[in-house]
Design a protein around this nucleic acid. Structure first.
Lengths: 165, 165
DNA sequence: TTGAAAATGAAATTCATTTTCATTTAGCAT
DNA sequence: ATGCTAAATGAAAATGAATTTCATTTTCAA
């Protein structure tokens, strides 16, 4: 199931898309890989989607644009995107690996509803500060963090309240 | 590989062990399940170990105490322990599900070294406060959270510095 | 244009997790 | 104590996501 995702981000501008492609192809050249149409399609599809995608979900979306692209290629491209920082894995409680785009995004975190699976983004600069502080305190060279809050969202709370009447 | 784990917690006292068993067996009775020797052995083994255990790792430890206990039983018991709050899953970057004990533990978080996989616990009451605040702000009934910092630990930093010379 | 290196995608493999099922056990009622 | 019934057990099979293999096709630099 596609994860519903609530945030306040606009879709990527043509400009941003271009920049992301640039980053991707620079990365490919750096590690001696080639520029292909499939990789292009996969990158675009990924950037056009705001949800947290599993490999399989991205694969389905990619197939709509080019039915000949295989799962394996999507899988490998997603890894490349993660390598160059355009995507990053978000651990979700359903066990599958999900990716979100990382390019041009404010540092953010997620609230995940354990009932319906919806995830709501939130922004809290404090969390970033904590990362720094704690890294310093423990002599840990902190590069990134992960913060999720689990609970029941308003909709589900109302839903089950209604049922209870 | 067993995750090295650095924290400042003492092994469980006989007292704490007893209390945990009590919680477990009350839970079993509540849901109409039975008290068995296998479950007892598994609980004890789990509590005696401070590391973050995957099901398979716990299984290996349990086998040392009673070679006849099967993987399936460990797997199912671990789920029961999670149900009654004695264990909880910690999402690790290696993809496998890992559990830690939750009984009588302060709320804590993890720093994970992306190089050697070691995890260091830290305590930060601020994180709990953030959970509350944010839940209130977004009308989200927050029940728990997850906070991990990724980076390079001091040992690995020294190690690679040495290599570079 | 051409050839070497890389990419592709279907299929096979791996591996953790979960389920099935025949057998054994716990614990309640007698 | 004894029998009974629901639950527990554990070996094996099933599942399903992640990863690898390999024969074929494509890219791109010379």
């Amino acid at each position: 199931m596609l994860q519903r995702r609530i945030d306040d981000h606009a879709p990527p501008t043509r400009e941003a898309m271009r920049e992301a492609q640039d980053i991707f192809y620079k990365h490919l050249r750096r590690v001696g890989l080639k520029h292909t149409e499939q990789r292009d399609t996969i990158l675009r599809t990924f950037l056009d989607t705001r949800d947290h995608l599993s490999t399989d979900e991205l694969f389905r979306l990619v197939k709509k644009r080019d039915a000949k692209i295989g799962f394996t290629t999507v899988y490998r491209t997603l890894k490349l995107l993660a390598e160059c920082g355009l995507a990053s894995a978000v651990p979700f409680p359903d066990g599958t690996a999900r990716y979100e785009h990382q390019f041009n995004r404010r540092s953010h975190h997620h609230m995940v509803c354990t009932e319906c699976g919806a995830s709501v983004e939130f922004f809290s600069p404090e969390v970033g500060k904590l990362e720094e502080e704690i890294g310093r305190k423990y002599h840990f060279d902190a590069t990134r963090h992960n913060f999720q809050i689990y609970g029941i969202c308003e909709d589900c709370r109302k839903g089950s309240a209604r049922k209870a009447i």
